[in-house]
């Protein structure tokens, strides 16, 4: 802010300043418009770490629904979460009967052989009766809608999995840095 007394020279300077200022305002307006355009869509990143039947559902349901909102969606699967993307294992995910307070039996019985299989069967029957989508259907649906299902490379190697074990369309060769980048860019971040 200048408090100089006006003179012919000062007026010339003021004109030049005004021009620079106008250019600067136009630049800023441009960047603001770019930012607003970028900020238009929302983004969701989920870190899926669990590979039990019941814990496979929440990330997939949220991911496919967010995609229906036209959000950009990334699900980063790590540790047991990888089993959700594993074509064979995803069809055979189990519920744990032990430590599950909703099971109608004490833990000492739940620990008996065959109890996990029984609990899983019960849940599968419920899902079938209720016409709830299967894990496989939700994966296909998510991929169809452009959800980026990622398999953490470090745990792929740790679990001795192969790229071919996963559903077609799954992103491999990604690590924690990629996950953090997506998390930082997201409006909603979840760890499941």
């Amino acid at each position: 802010m200048s408090t100089d007394t006006p003179s012919a020279d000062a007026e010339n300077v003021a004109d030049a300043d005004l021009e620079t200022l106008q250019e600067r305002v136009e630049d800023l307006e441009g960047s603001l418009a770019d930012l607003e355009a970028e900020d238009d869509g929302k983004k969701l990143t989920i870190i899926a770490t669990k590979g039990t039947f019941d814990m496979a559902y929440p990330p997939l349901i949220l991911a496919s629904t967010a995609a229906a909102f036209d959000w950009e969606v990334v699900v980063f699967h790590t540790f047991w979460g990888l089993d959700i993307l594993h074509e064979e294992k995803s069809k055979d995910l189990k519920i744990s009967a032990v430590g599950n307070p909703t099971m109608p039996m004490p833990n000492v019985l739940a620990a008996l052989p065959g109890m996990d299989a029984m609990a899983t069967k019960m849940m599968e029957r419920k899902i079938d009766q209720n016409n709830t989508a299967t894990i496989e259907e939700l994966i296909e649906l998510s991929l169809d809608q452009g959800v980026d299902l990622q398999a953490c490379q470090m745990t792929v190697e740790l679990m001795d999995y192969d790229e071919e074990d996963f559903y077609e369309g799954v992103t491999t060769g990604v690590g924690a840095a990629t996950a953090l980048q997506h998390l930082a860019e997201s409006d909603v971040q979840l760890l499941v």
Binding site: I61, S64, T65, A67, A68, F69, N131, A133, L141, Q145
Partner: peptide
């Protein structure tokens, strides 16, 4: 009809 969450929303979006 008969389908449950998230199908009604997801299929509406696709349609």
């Amino acid at each position: 009809k008969g389908q449950s969450c998230p199908m009604p929303v997801v299929k509406t979006k696709q349609a």
